[in-house]
Structure formats: structure tokens, C-alpha cells
Design a protein around this nucleic acid. Structure first.
Length: 425
RNA sequence: GGAGGGUUGCCAGAGCGGACGAAUGGGACGGUCUCGAAAACCGUUGUGGUCGCAAGGCCACCGUGGGUUCAAAUCCCACACCCUCCGCCA
């Protein structure tokens, strides 16, 4: 959520920033109008309320003095004022509710250094690491959705029987690989991040803080009976750890990591990437997260990108890093980078991590504050990113590590997790 | 799921229609005293909104949302959460 005071004091700056996303910015004017109305009504309401309070005190005093008749007169006067106050209060409340509804749907302003662009085709590639297009043999040019069934490590046919389209099931070394990747990503970040095992079902408030609600409700699984939502990423519960709290400044930055399953309805992408592990309703991911001061945020962002790159690189996979342009940014993002792994069998760059700085956008939604040096309170900044998203890395490993003579090797970094075996299949 | 008890400020805890943003104690912070410290004593100690150049004023907040009343922490209703017992359960 944007700061209403910014919209109030510099609406044109806010509009110019949002326009870089290529969206309609007329809501900003609408918010400004409603905010003005809400304040005007609120001031009037408070003035009448103050009068009612003063009169009520008089009534109490008159009763104690035994002057019942006069008390009744003041009561009548106060009652009339009270009715007017009630009307004003209702109008003011309606206006502020509308302001909030609009604010919840207005996206974050991009960072000045974020590149301009209309869509994902405009995301600049910052660097490509470990990639040699001619360095792959024919045995590596087989997609994982062929290799998986061939070696009995991917059984999507039965996953579909069990749960429906776009669910996957790994077996044997494939299941071990999926779990090993989680463990590995956690271990690599344990030096700086506290491990958390958060709930996977969360309340609407929690899902609103990170930005999925109200606008993107269709993308999430909802358990209607209990009004709970399946988390689409561990970002959601991690961000709400300190919701409605004031975080101790000397504890910032505060970093968390969590391995969780993630649930996504993928509404609107039915029929796309249906094969293999590229797009699934349920997948596992290790997420890293931080609360920070505005000053700490840029370095943390860079560190998180570097950590993810190093993790993917350490698995012997080729990857490239992109910065997300203004037209492709998520609603809550202020600045964002993607890491994509190269999968030789499918000959595609697969997004395996998105690392983002949210500025105070999520913190304002979740009311997460700290006490800056100058006194008072301010919203913290939040950052998060995938340390490692399993399915696409799984696919890249299976394709990259397929041997000319058959079988799939375990990347050396994962050997400690394979119970003495050096083969996935 | 059933029965009962509870939810007040940083913490503990009083208040159960009017002078309560809230007693009292503890903690924290500042000061006096001291060579220094402890003790003692004094003081300070919430968040947000809004108006104002400022000083400051006004308003809101006693789990959440409604209601009753001239007036609600206090009365009524609903919901959430916590505790105890019973049931169920990995």
C-alpha cells in the first residue's frame, strides 16, 4: 500500500512513477478526492463529538447537584447533536473504507533505477554464467518429461489420477532429489538466516499483507469452510511474523528462511507448460526473507541475488540474471531480479528465483514498524526471494546430468544427501 | 464438538455507567544523593488520526464488530483468541 500522505502531498510524482508500469493512474486522483472528503468529514465529526462529550459531562454534574430538569434539557441537546455525529461518522467511515479498498489495489511505485519496459521481453539480462550453447551432448537434449518416466523418477500420470492436471509426483531418486534440493538450499543460507517452519494455511489478513488479496484472490487456493488460504509462497507467512508489531531497531535486519510447499491455482495459464515440472499447482521452495531499514535494504537485495546465483552455480547449472522492468514487475515490487536456470533438454531458460525489494509497501499493509533514529515510528522495508525453487531446478539437473551411457548423476554438491549413492537413476 | 473461566498500557493487575488514556506495583529511561555503585527519593514512560508556522488543541484506541445511553473499559448481542475439564485425534 502506498503512503496516503505521499498521494496527498505529491500526487504528480506518484502518478509519474506508476505510469512507468504502463497502468492507468486515474485511481490516484480518485483516492486523493476521497481522502480529502474523509478528512473533512472526520474533522467535522470530531468537533461535534467534542461538544457531545462536554455536554455529557455537564449532565453528570447536574445530576450530582440534583438539578434534574436542567439535566434533561442538556440531554436533549446532546441527543440531537449525537444524531448529526452519527451521520457524519457513517459518511466518514464509508469514505475511508473506500480509500483503503483503492489503496490495496494500487501497485507499488518502481525504484528509480528499475529499467523501463512494457513486458518480460524488455527485462535486461545482466549476466549469463556457465552457459556454453555448444557444450551439451545429444543425451542432454532430452526433456525431463521424457527422462523422468524412462527412469521411473517422475510419475505424473499417477499424480494426475490422484489430484488432477498440473500436479506432479517424484519417485525414488527423483523424490530424493526434490528433498535434497530443499535441504541443500537451507544449509547454504543457514549462516545468515533463521530457519522457520511456518503454517501453510493462513488467514485473509496474512494474505492481504503481502499483496495477494484482494486483487489476486483467483490465484490462490481457498479453504472455504474455515476461511483459510493455502500459501502460494513462504513469503506470505514470513512477512506476517511481525505483522502489527514494532520491531526492535537493533534487531534489524532480521532474516528468515523457510522450506515449504507452495500452492498456486495458475488461473489463466491452463494448457501452458503442462508437461513435466515446469508449472505445477503444488511445489516446494526455500524462501529467504528479511525485514530491514531503508538504508539496509539495497545491500541485502544484492546479497540475496548473489546467494541465489551461487547456489544455482554450485549445482553445476548454467544460469542468467535479469532485472525486471517496470512493465513486468509484480504489484508489490519496488525493485526485482530474476535468476533463470538453463534446461538443455527443453532448451529453455527457466525462472527459478525472483528476488524483490518491496520498500514499505507490504509493511504498510501489515502494519510492521520500527523506530528510526530520529524518533517516532516508520514502516520497515521487506525483501524476499527464492533461495531455490525445486521443480525447475530438478528439471535442469535431470537434463544436464543425464549420462551418454544412460542414468543420471547426482551433482557433487548434493552427494551428502543421497545416502551414499552417486546416481539419481 | 460440549461445559465453564478469561482477554485492560512494556509486564502484572485494579476498575464493572459520569471527573478513566485508565489506580497500584514492577520494568525501562532521566535526575538527586555517592569516589563509584546499590538502596532511597523525584520525574518521565503508548499508538494513531486531524487542525495548527509553532506552542498546543481536538478525536480515536481497555480482544474484534455491532447495539443501548446525554455519556460505555464498565450494560446487551455476535465473533475471534487464550485457559481448564470432557470428547476426538497424529
Amino acid at each position: 500500500m502506498l503512503d496516503i500522505r505521499r498521494i496527498r502531498t505529491e500526487p504528480d510524482v506518484v502518478k509519474a512513477a506508476l505510469a512507468r508500469r504502463g497502468i492507468d493512474v486515474s485511481d490516484i486522483d480518485r483516492v486523493a478526492e476521497l481522502d480529502e472528503r474523509q478528512r473533512r468529514l472526520g474533522v467535522e465529526r470530531d468537533e461535534i463529538r467534542a461538544q457531545v462529550k462536554a455536554l455529557s459531562k455537564q449532565v453528570g454534574q447536574l445530576h450530582r447537584d440534583g438539578r434534574a430538569t436542567e439535566a434533561a434539557e442538556v440531554q436533549a441537546e446532546s441527543r440531537a447533536l449525537g444524531e448529526r455525529e452519527g451521520e457524519l461518522a457513517a459518511e466518514a467511515a464509508a469514505a475511508s473504507a473506500e480509500v483503503r479498498e483503492l489503496l490495496l489495489r494500487i501497485p507499488n511505485t518502481p525504484h528509480p533505477d528499475a529499467p523501463d519496459g512494457a513486458g518480460d521481453a524488455d527485462n535486461p539480462v545482466l549476466r549469463v554464467t556457465g552457459f556454453d550453447p555448444d557444450g551439451y551432448g545429444d543425451h542432454q537434449r532430452i526433456p525431463h518429461w521424457e527422462l523422468g518416466p524412462r527412469y521411473g523418477i517422475l510419475d505424473n500420470e499417477r499424480a494426475v489420477k490422484i489430484s488432477g492436471a498440473m500436479f506432479t509426483m517424484q519417485r525414488k531418486g527423483g523424490a530424493t532429489l526434490a528433498r535434497a534440493l530443499l535441504q541443500y538450499a537451507l544449509d547454504r543460507n543457514a549462516d545468515a538466516f533463521e530457519e522457520v517452519r511456518p503454517p501453510s494455511l493462513v488467514s485473509s489478513e496474512t494474505l492481504t499483507a503481502t499483496g495477494q488479496l484482494p486483487k489476486f484472490a483467483d490465484d490462490a487456493y481457498w479453504v472455504e469452510r474455515d476461511d483459510l488460504w493455502c500459501i502460494p509462497t513462504a513469503e506470505v507467512p514470513l512477512t506476517s511474523i511481525h505483522r502489527d508489531e514494532i520491531v526492535e531497531t537493533d534487531e534489524l535486519p532480521q532474516r528468515f528462511m523457510a522450506a515449504t510447499s507452495c500452492y498456486r491455482r495458475e488461473a489463466g495459464s491452463a494448457g501452458r507448460d503442462t508437461r513435466g515440472m515446469l508449472r505445477t499447482h503444488e511445489f516446494d521452495k526455500v524462501e529467504v526473507f528479511a525485514y530491514a531499514t531503508p538504508e539496509q535494504a539495497p545491500d541485502l537485495l544484492a546479497e540475496m541475488v548473489a546467494r541465489t546465483e551461487a547456489t544455482i552455480g554450485s549445482l553445476g547449472l548454467a544460469y542468467r540474471t535479469l532485472e525486471i522492468c517496470t512493465g513486468d514487475m509484480g504489484q508489490s515490487h519496488h525493485r526485482s531480479f530474476d535468476v533463470e536456470v538453463y534446461a538443455p533438454g527443453t532448451d529453455q531458460w527457466l525462472e527459478v528465483s525472483s528476488i524483490s525489494w518491496f520498500a514499505d509497501y507490504q509493511a504498510r499493509r501489515g502494519n510492521i514498524r520500527y523506530r528510526p533514529g530520529g524518533g517516532g515510528t516508520a514502516m520497515v522495508h521487506t525483501l524476499n526471494g527464492s533461495a531455490l525453487a525445486v521443480p525447475r531446478v530438478w528439471a535442469a539437473i535431470v537434463e544436464t546430468y543425464h549420462r551418454p551411457d544412460g542414468g543420471i548423476d547426482v551433482p557433487s554438491a548434493l552427494l551428502p544427501y543421497f545416502r551414499g549413492s552417486d546416481r539419481i537413476a
